[in-house]
């Protein structure tokens, strides 16, 4: 009888492996103990990742809104006002990036890079668009990074260590990687194309030509890099070609027929040609 019971218990132990961890016989093995540590480590990592994804989403949304706002410059008399408003919005985005930098403090930037790369690219797009409208030149990577320096008053740290003797203001920086910059600039060209078409509609005859030469410069730059960059770059190069083609077409039409067709009709002609691609972009 006692033998039979003993047999039953061993069998249970073998088959219901899941319950081994809370085995009533006090069988908490080393393996399980080790995995508890792993569980914690993985959970901490995943939590951080999720927080970064959320921040990245917020950065993306706010940057997109800024870009929409900036598109209004073609139809608004007071350009400076719009630019200032966009700058205020971008400050908000920068604060979010500051939070990202804080999450990444003491971490390897590249370990979590996938979590926030899309947000950073969108920010690059917005900030370079803003810069272009104001200065008509391409913002450099250093200029972007220079604005991503954050000064944080350290309160938590001093509380934890218990030595509040030096209320040190710590400086956090966020570095946009050249690849993210490159992809952001590639996205910028799409916005420039849109701006070109809408400025035609507003009877602005200079901006399209300015834009086309700028876009050509960027296009040349991308051709110079060619397939050296990451895979995404070559994909965007195709879209960039299309945007450039459209802008060049627009300039061509302005030159040839600008004097013949009334301006509001010109806009119609151009927008009907771009409707198809705009739709594609909206989906992606």
């Amino acid at each position: 009888m006692s033998k039979r019971e003993g047999n039953g218990s061993t069998r249970r132990r073998r088959t219901e492996s899941a319950q081994r961890a809370e085995d009533p016989l006090g069988h908490t093995s080393q393996v399980v103990a080790a995995f508890r540590v792993f569980q914690q480590e993985l959970d901490t990592k995943h939590d951080k990742y999720e927080r970064l994804v959320k921040l990245s989403r917020d950065i993306t949304i706010e940057s997109k809104r800024t870009i929409f706002l900036l598109h209004r410059v073609t139809s608004v008399p007071n350009v400076e006002e719009v630019l200032n408003e966009a700058d205020a919005k971008l400050d908000g985005v920068r604060q979010k990036i500051g939070q990202v930098a804080e999450e990444l403090r003491g971490e390897d930037l590249h370990q979590f890079h996938k979590a926030f790369t899309s947000g950073v690219q969108e920010y690059v797009e917005a900030v370079s668009f803003h810069h272009f409208i104001r200065h008509r030149i391409l913002i450099s990577l250093e200029e972007i990074n220079a604005r991503l320096v954050f000064v944080k008053e350290e309160k938590l740290e001093t509380k934890v260590t218990g030595e509040g003797s030096f209320p040190e203001a710590c400086v956090l920086t966020f570095q946009v990687t050249p690849t993210d910059y490159l992809l952001g600039v590639a996205d910028l060209t799409g916005e420039l194309m849109r701006m070109c078409i809408s400025s035609v509609g507003n009877g602005d005859m200079d901006t399209p030509f300015e834009l086309s030469s700028f876009l050509r410069d960027i296009h040349d730059g991308f051709s110079y890099i060619g397939n050296m960059g990451p895979y995404e770059v070559s994909k965007k190069l195709h879209t960039l070609r299309q945007s450039l083609g459209k802008v060049e077409d627009a300039c061509y039409m302005l030159r040839v027929r600008g004097s013949e067709i009334p301006k509001h009709m010109l806009a119609d002609v151009l927008s009907s040609r771009t409707a198809l691609l705009d739709h594609d972009e909206g989906v992606s």
Partner: peptide
């Protein structure tokens, strides 16, 4: 910084990365 300069800087970064 001109567009060309910027792109040649990035090109330099990318080729170093590839090495």
């Amino acid at each position: 910084m001109s567009v060309t300069e910027m792109f040649s800087y990035i090109q330099g970064f990318l080729s170093a990365d590839q090495d």
